[in-house]
């Protein structure tokens, strides 16, 4: 249990150090506010469109494909550790599973989910 508690300590400590560095800058740095300085940077002229508008739907497709493949990876991890004990049967089953994964990838490919125009 202690092994995993150390993870929390690491996180708290790292966040503390990063916060400390930022705090130091805010003390040492100057503070001169101005209208122009606070504008979002856009190569010098006023922003034309709102930044949080539309963006390509392809990003969603990539994210969905990623979730599917990541879940399949989760099945592969425990298999990889014990696969020598499982013998030939375990190997055959995993080849069948990977075959289904590959069929899915080929389907997504043929449907054009991987093309970016």
């Amino acid at each position: 249990m202690m092994e995993y508690a150390s993870l929390l300590i690491v996180f708290a400590f790292a966040a503390f150090v990063a916060g400390l560095l930022i705090f130091l800058t805010s003390i040492l740095g100057p503070r001169r506010k101005s209208e122009v300085k606070e504008q979002p940077f856009e190569c010098g002229f006023d922003p034309i469109t709102l930044p949080r508008g539309r963006f390509g739907v392809k990003f969603y497709l990539v994210a969905m494909l990623f979730i599917i493949f990541d879940v399949e990876l989760v099945f592969l991890f425990p298999w990889a550790v014990v696969f020598k004990k499982l013998g030939a049967m375990g190997l055959l089953e995993m080849i069948a599973f990977l075959g289904i994964v590959v069929v899915g990838l080929v389907y997504a490919w043929k449907k054009g989910a991987l093309e970016w125009e």
């Binding site: 690491v10 790292a14 150090v17 800058t25 040492l28 740095g29 606070e38």
Partner: peptide
Amino acid sequence: LGKELIFPKNCDKVLYFLAPILSFA
């Protein structure tokens, strides 16, 4: 270390503050 820290206009203050810390930890 001696430079000014700017909060851009209309930024999401909490997330803007947390982002560098969360990428470092």
